[in-house]
C-alpha cells in the first residue's frame, strides 16, 4: 500500500493507543492485523500499544491518547467499560459499523415478540441489556471509521490526523 502515514518528521514521543472490542465479529481487528503487513515497521516507531487483546497479554488501561473501539454495547459491563475507556482517553474513535451505528450486532433490537421469547432466557441468564447500543448512545465519540469491515483508507486518515494532533509526527 502506498499511502504511508509518516509523511513528516518523527519525534521521539509515541502515540499511546488502545484497541478495544465489544460485541461484533472483529472484522476490523482482522483488517488492522492485515494493515500491519505494510505498516508494522512504521507503527513500531510511532505507536505505544497499551491495550490490544489481539496482539499481547500485558494490557493496561491507563491514560491513552487515542482509544480505537470496535463493536456495539450488549451488556451493563460493556457500558461500564466504555465509560472507563472514555475517562482515560483523550480521543475515542469508533471503528466499524457495529460501533458507529450498532448494526448488525443490534439486530435483536428489532426482533418480533416470537424471536424475543426464544432468546429471553439467554438475555436474562447472562445479563444482556434489553437493547444493544452504539457507542455514541453512551459516550461522546470524537471520530468515526464506518464500514463493515472498517474503511481502511479512512482508518489511515484518522490515524494520521491523530498522529499530527498529538505532535507525534510534524509536517
Amino acid at each position: 500500500m502506498s499511502d504511508k502515514i509518516s509523511t513528516g518528521k518523527i519525534t521521539t514521543k509515541k502515540l499511546r493507543i488502545g484497541w478495544f472490542t465489544f460485541s461484533c465479529c472483529e472484522d476490523s481487528t482482522v483488517l488492522f492485523t492485515e494493515l500491519l503487513n505494510d505498516h508494522w515497521q512504521e507503527w513500531k516507531k510511532l505507536l505505544d500499544i497499551r491495550y490490544a487483546r489481539v496482539l499481547q497479554s500485558k494490557n493496561v488501561l491507563d491514560e491513552l491518547d487515542v482509544a480505537f473501539v470496535e463493536g456495539a454495547l450488549a451488556s451493563p459491563e460493556h457500558v461500564e467499560k466504555i465509560k472507563e475507556i472514555r475517562r482515560k482517553s483523550k480521543k475515542i474513535v469508533a471503528i466499524g459499523a457495529c460501533a458507529v451505528m450498532g448494526l448488525p450486532s443490534a439486530q435483536r433490537n428489532k426482533f418480533d415478540p416470537e424471536r424475543l421469547e426464544e432468546i429471553e432466557h439467554i438475555l436474562s441468564r447472562f445479563s444482556y441489556m434489553d437493547h444493544v447500543q452504539k457507542l455514541s448512545d453512551v459516550i461522546t465519540v470524537d471520530a468515526q471509521v464506518p464500514g463493515c469491515p472498517m474503511d481502511e483508507k479512512k482508518f489511515l486518515q484518522v490515524l494520521n490526523q491523530m498522529l499530527k494532533e498529538f505532535n507525534i509526527v510534524t509536517e
Binding site: 460485541s23 461484533c24 465479529c25 472484522d27 450488549a74 451488556s75 460493556h78 448488525p104 450486532s105 439486530q107 435483536r108 426482533f111 424471536r115 426464544e118 432468546i119 439467554i122 447472562f126 444482556y128 463493515c148
Partner: peptide, 23 residues
C-alpha cells in the same frame, strides 16, 4: 455476547443470507 444470527436469518430473502451470515 451472542448476536442471534440463527434467529435473524429467518424471514430474510435467501439472496441476502450469505452476506448476513459472513458477519
Amino acid at each position: 455476547y451472542k448476536r442471534f444470527y440463527t434467529q435473524a436469518m429467518r424471514g430474510k430473502p435467501y439472496k441476502t443470507l450469505p452476506a448476513l451470515l459472513a458477519r
